[in-house]
Structures are given as structure tokens and as C-alpha cells.
């Protein structure tokens, strides 16, 4: 089994269970709609910091809901089947790539919904999309691995929240900062430090996941 086949399998499974994708979309939509209603955003203007923080919180909650499923909730038999056909490294790589793509999809559609219902204040689109890509990859990498750990525990849903939020905080803080810079349209040199930091965090998370996943998987 190659990594590509595993990713293809994940996509096929997701497309077949249309209810999951639809549910996720609806979840995202209702989160954004609630933000729109509660903040009364059409009337009041919103500043760059609040917009970026709100945007990433919405993305975080949707992603936690979708990525958490990558190991939690799989049946025991299915896991044993994967164990026999693929190496742990292939499995974690395929999960990370698949989840990153899914997360990117969520954040892009979140962006579209935000611009429809709230506002689209982004001035520097290149930096904004760099933040989107790096943030999505970072969130899904760390959440995939945490989900692997949490799925072995007794109370995996609570465990997922407890374990993941402190770990993703540094990624979130960086992406919110970059997003704010992009919204304000500040010169790009101001965001390069954060972008490089994000890149470094992503590399560390991916490398740790790649090295450590065999220990999580074995049981």
C-alpha cells in the first residue's frame, strides 16, 4: 500500500458518507452565522485583530471536529486491518496529508462564508493564503497525532480537547498574527518572521509525528 492509495481511500470514504461532509459544512456555516448574529457585525465595524481571531477560532472548532475523527471512532477491526497492510509511517503521512487538504478546504470555505456574511477585510492576499496553508497544515499535523494518542485512552473526546488545545496554541497565535498583518495590509517584511516560525513549527510537528507514530500505533 502506498501513501497515495491510503489518501485516495480516505477521500473515497469521505465522499461516500456524504452526511459527514454535509454535516461539517453545516457546522461551519452555523458557527459563522452565530458569529454574525451575536456580534451584530453588519452594523458595527470589526477591527483587524477581532476578525483574525474570530476567523481562526471558527476554523479551529471545525477542524477539531473533523480531524479528531481520524483515529477516534474507527472500529478496532479496521485499525487491525490497516496495521496489517501498511507501515505506521505511511499511515500517519497519509492522515496528515489528507487532513491538511480537508482543513484547507474548510478554511477556504470559511473564508468565503466570512466574506459573504461578515466582511472581507483582507488586503494582502498572498500573505493571507500563506497563513491559511501553513495554519491548516500545522493544525492538522498536530491534531492528527494527538488524535492518535487520545484514541487509545478511556475518555477520548475529553482527552482530545485537553491534549490538543495547549499544543495548537502556539500555531494559532502565529497564524492570527500573520492574518492580522495581512488584513491590515502591512508590508510583507513584517510577517516573514512569523511565517518562518510557523514553517519551523510545522516541520518539527511533522518530524516528531513521523518518528513517534510507530510507538502510538503499536498496541
Amino acid at each position: 500500500m502506498s501513501v497515495f492509495e491510503l489518501i485516495r481511500k480516505d477521500f473515497l470514504l469521505e465522499l461516500r458518507r456524504k452526511s459527514v461532509i454535509a454535516g461539517l459544512g453545516l457546522y461551519l456555516f452555523s458557527l459563522i452565522f452565530i458569529c454574525y448574529l451575536t456580534f451584530n457585525l453588519r452594523v458595527n465595524s470589526i477591527n483587524a485583530m477581532t476578525w483574525s481571531a474570530l476567523f481562526w477560532l471558527v476554523i479551529l472548532f471545525s477542524v477539531v471536529n473533523s480531524v479528531a475523527k481520524s483515529f477516534i471512532g474507527e472500529r478496532k477491526g479496521v485499525l487491525i486491518y490497516y496495521y496489517t497492510i501498511a507501515s505506521p509511517q505511511q499511515i500517519i503521512l497519509s492522515k496528515i496529508i489528507y487532513n491538511s487538504l480537508l482543513c484547507l478546504l474548510i478554511s477556504v470555505s470559511g473564508y468565503v462564508l466570512f466574506s459573504i456574511f461578515i466582511v472581507n477585510p483582507v488586503q494582502d492576499h498572498l500573505v493571507f493564503f500563506a497563513a491559511l496553508v501553513l495554519g491548516s497544515v500545522g493544525l492538522s499535523t498536530s491534531l492528527s497525532i494527538i488524535s492518535g494518542i487520545a484514541s487509545k485512552g478511556n475518555n477520548s473526546n475529553v482527552l482530545m480537547a485537553v491534549l490538543s488545545f495547549p499544543v495548537v496554541v502556539s500555531i494559532l497565535l502565529m497564524t492570527i498574527r500573520v492574518t492580522k498583518n495581512a488584513v491590515d495590509g502591512i508590508e510583507r517584511a513584517a510577517s516573514t518572521d512569523e511565517i518562518l516560525n510557523l514553517l519551523a513549527i510545522n516541520c518539527i510537528a511533522a518530524a516528531l509525528g513521523y518518528i513517534l507514530f510507530p510507538y502510538i500505533w503499536r498496541s
Binding site: I149, V167, L208, L212, Y215
Partner: peptide, 18 residues
Amino acid sequence: ARLSAVYNIFAFASLIPL
């Protein structure tokens, strides 16, 4: 022991940026 060792390594890796 095994899973908490894995998480410990993650925790230390996130301690450095924090």
C-alpha cells in the same frame, strides 16, 4: 507509559516555542 512518553516528547517540543 508508552503513550505518555510520546506526549512528553510533544510537550517538550511545544515548551520551547511557548
